[in-house]
Amino acid sequence: MAWLSLANVDLPMQHLLSFSEGGSPARYAQHMNPEGIANAVVSVLAAAGTLAGVTSRTRRRRNEIRENLSLAEELQKNTILRDHTPAVAWLHGKIALDVAKLSGQPIGAPKKPIPKGSVVFATILLLAFGSWTYWLNRDGFVWYSLVTGALAASMAISILGMTTNREIPPDAENEMPEGAHPLGSQSPAESIVTSVAMAAMSSDGRFEDEGQLGVAFRFIRHMTAGEFDDAVNLADENWLRCRIQAWLWNARAFTGDDEAQMQATTDAMMITRSGHAFWEAFSSAEVEFFQDAWGEIDPDQLGGASRRRRVARDYDLVIVAPLGESGGYFVNSPTPVPGGLTFLMHNSDGSWLLANHLGGAPPLPGYPPSWWIANDPSLDELRD
C-alpha cells in the first residue's frame, strides 16, 4: 500500500483517493489517527509561534540584558551622561537586577516562616467546626449553627493570616540621624539597584581594601578583635610614635618622667616593637583604650561617607558610621552622625595608612604629643 504525506499527516493512498472522489469530511476524519492529529496541531502552533515571535520569558530577559549591556557601553562614551548624571549607574543597577532574576536569586522581601504546627491545628479546627456546621444545617438552617460557622470562619481567617503578608519590613527609622533619608526602600530589588549605583558613585577605589575607607574599616576590625600588631601595620610611623609617646607620658609615674629617657624608649620600641619589654603592656593598654572608646561597635555594620574629603596633599578625611540594618542613607545638609568616627588617612609611598584617629591633622610628636583636639586631658598639666 502506498503512502503520501500531506501537512505532516500520513494517510493511505486509498483514503486520499476516496476523499477526492467525493468522500465526506466526516468520513475523512474517521480515518485520521490521534498521532497524526497531534502532529498537525503541533506544526500549526509552532508555525504560528514563529511568525508571532513568541519566545520564552528567560530568552526575553537574556536579550534585554544583552541590549542593556550594549546601551551601557554607548552611555560610557557620552561624557556628559557619564560624569554628570547617574544614568549609567541606573542602567547598571537594572542589569544587576535582571541578572539576579535570571539566576533565580531571592530578591523578595524577607518573610516570616509559616508556623506549620499552628496552621495544621487551625486546619483541623476549621474542618471540625465546618463539618459541625454542615451537620447542624443538614435538615435546614438553624440559628445556633452561626456559632460553629463563625468559629470555622475565624479559623479560615487565622490560616490566611499565617500564610500571607509575611514580609518583614526593615526597621531602619531609629538607625539613621535626624534628617537622613534611606538609600533604598523596603524592596530588595531597589536595594540591588542602589548598591550598584553607590558602587558607581564610589568607583575611585576608596572603598577597596587598600583605599582610604577600606584601610579604615580594616583598622577598626583588627582593633576591635584585639589584633593590635595587625592594626599598627595599617597606621603610619608618625601615628605609632605619637601613641607610644602618649602611653609613656601617661605612665611616667612608673616608667620615669625624664624626657630624654622617654625619647630613647620610644625609639627603641619603634625599632624592636614586639621584641621590647614594654610592648605587651603598651599594646594591651591601646586595645583596651580603643575598645572602651568605641563601645559595642560592629565592624560589619559600618558604612563610609561617599564624598571624598581632601584636607591636604596626600591626606584625606574619612567618616565611618554605623548603619545598622538601614543599608545606608543620604543627607541634604550638614547633619550630626551619631556614633560616627573620623579618621585622617595618609598616602605614604602609594599606600593609604591611618594618620590620626581623632583630629583632622597629623599628630605632632612630643611629651605629650598633640592630637589637635579640644580639651585634651593630657595637656592640663602643662604650663601655659
Rank of each mutant, 00 (worst) to 15 (best):
R138I: 13
W143K: 08
A152G: 10
S185P: 01
W135A: 11
T163K: 00
T164E: 00
N174K: 12
P170W: 06
P182I: 02
L183P: 06
A153G: 13
L146Q: 11
Y134H: 02
G179D: 12
P177S: 07
S145Q: 08
R166V: 10
W135M: 10
A180W: 05
G184C: 04
W143E: 08
S191D: 14
L136T: 01
R138S: 11
F141N: 07
S191P: 01
V147Y: 09
Y134T: 08
Y144I: 15
R138L: 09
R166E: 02
T163C: 00
P188M: 15
D171F: 07
L136D: 02
E190D: 15
G161A: 04
N174P: 09
G161T: 02
G179W: 08
Y144S: 09
E167A: 14
I157W: 15
P188D: 14
T133G: 01
S191T: 14
E173L: 07
I168V: 12
M176N: 10
A153W: 09
D139R: 15
T163M: 03
T148K: 06
V147K: 09
A153K: 11
W135N: 04
L146Y: 10
A172I: 00
D171S: 04
W143L: 14
A150V: 02
A180K: 07
W132P: 01
A152W: 04
Y144E: 09
A189D: 13
A152M: 08
P182A: 10
D171M: 10
M176P: 15
V147A: 11
L151D: 02
M162Y: 01
V142I: 07
W143N: 07
Y144F: 10
A153C: 11
D171P: 03
P169S: 12
A189F: 03
S145Y: 03
L160K: 07
Y134F: 05
W132V: 00
S191Y: 09
P170E: 11
L160C: 12
A180Y: 13
S187E: 11
L151V: 06
W143C: 05
G161D: 03
T164V: 01
E190C: 11
A180Q: 07
I159Y: 05
T164M: 02
A156V: 00
V142H: 05
H181F: 03
R138E: 11
S154A: 07
E173F: 12
E167M: 14
G140A: 00
R138A: 09
S158W: 12
I168E: 09
V147P: 12
W135V: 03
W132T: 02
E190H: 15
T133R: 01
P169E: 14
S185V: 08
S191F: 12
S185E: 02
A172D: 01
A150N: 13
N174L: 12
S158V: 01
S191L: 04
G149Q: 07
M176Q: 10
P182L: 03
N137L: 06
P170V: 04
G184W: 01
N165H: 02
N165R: 05
A172R: 09
Q186Y: 08
E190M: 14
W135Y: 13
S187G: 03
Y144G: 04
I157H: 14
E178I: 07
L146W: 14
N165E: 02
Y134P: 00
H181A: 08
A189V: 08
G140M: 07
N174I: 09
S154W: 02
L151P: 01
M155P: 00
T163R: 04
V142S: 06
V147F: 15
A189Q: 15
